[in-house]
Design a protein around this nucleic acid. Structure first.
Length: 271
DNA sequence: ATGGTGGTCATACCA
């Protein structure tokens, strides 16, 4: 029995409940971290998820915007929320699980998109994004408590050249500007995190997790970006079996513009 | 250079 975690920016969990249930039925992750749920906790559709076998949920939602939720087949031994930038935006929830004696902190993160203008002096949303990135620098993979960690979510940045369809054309586009990509890689390094999607797909290969709604034909033009990420503490790397980018979900009925990303781990006792 | 498509909540605002 492997351990599988998935992350998906769902762009309204209530509107897209049918494809959430389809994904859970077909891929059966142990944990699913959702972003942009756009749903206050009191209105979160728990019952159908419980019926699908996901009995545990850690919710941090608000009306209309943002919102994260971590749903699980395994119980949580602890949950926590972090506020970023002194705001009450719902952009983070931490849930700790125990899997075969190994405790794992799972951070579910939704980073600010940042608007269109790339000058933080002119665009407060981009300034907010940069401050969020700065605060992500003090988000360690090793908390010093002996637990492993995973950090997943929509970070709204495609850090590497082949995380976008055209590096050259995207350098002036929010999500791939040099300040964002260097800050994100800086936060990753400062926290001691490993970008595990890129341990299985080499940086020379294109890899996308998001395709705009605005394209006439998203699959034909294939102008994607890798905005969704799975980071781990280095101690989990020996157990990493494979990753899955569920590209097919972009073609499902009433799709999100993001697709689920997954990591599959061998059971620690098997190695 | 522009607008292209979605979501929320009922109007602009956000992605």
């Amino acid at each position: 029995m492997s351990f599988t975690i998935a992350s998906w920016n769902i762009n309204s969990v209530r509107l897209r409940l049918p494809i959430v249930l389809r994904f859970l039925a077909e891929y059966r992750p142990d944990i699913l971290c959702l972003q942009e749920t756009k749903c206050p906790d009191a209105l979160f559709p728990l019952q159908p998820l419980v019926a699908a076998g996901y009995a545990y949920a850690a919710l941090n939602g608000q009306k209309g915007y943002h919102g994260v939720a971590t749903i699980s087949r395994l119980p949580f031994i602890h949950t926590d929320k972090k506020l970023f930038c002194g705001r009450h935006d719902c952009r983070h929830i931490e849930a700790t699980i125990e899997y075969q004696g190994k405790k794992i902190h799972i951070h579910n993160v939704y980073a600010p998109a940042g608007g269109d203008e790339t000058d933080p002096a002119l665009n407060p949303k981009f300034a907010h994004k940069l401050q969020f990135l700065e605060e992500m620098h003090s988000f360690p993979a090793d908390k010093g408590d002996g637990c492993a960690s995973l950090l997943v979510g929509d970070l709204n940045i495609a850090p590497l050249e082949n995380d976008v369809w055209s590096h050259k054309q995207m350098l002036k586009v929010v999500s791939h500007t040099p300040i964002e990509t260097s800050e994100l890689l800086g936060a990753q390094k400062a926290g001691g995190w490993v970008d595990i999607l890129r341990t299985k797909v080499p940086p020379q290969e294109k890899l996308y997790t998001w395709w705009s709604y605005r394209a006439r034909d998203w699959a034909a033009s294939n102008r994607g970006r890798r905005l969704d990420h799975i980071w781990s503490s280095p101690d989990l790397l020996p157990f990493l079996d494979k990753i899955t980018i569920c590209r097919e979900a972009r073609g499902w009925e009433k799709p999100s513009d993001h697709v689920p990303v997954m990591a599959h781990f061998f059971p620690p006792q098997s190695l």
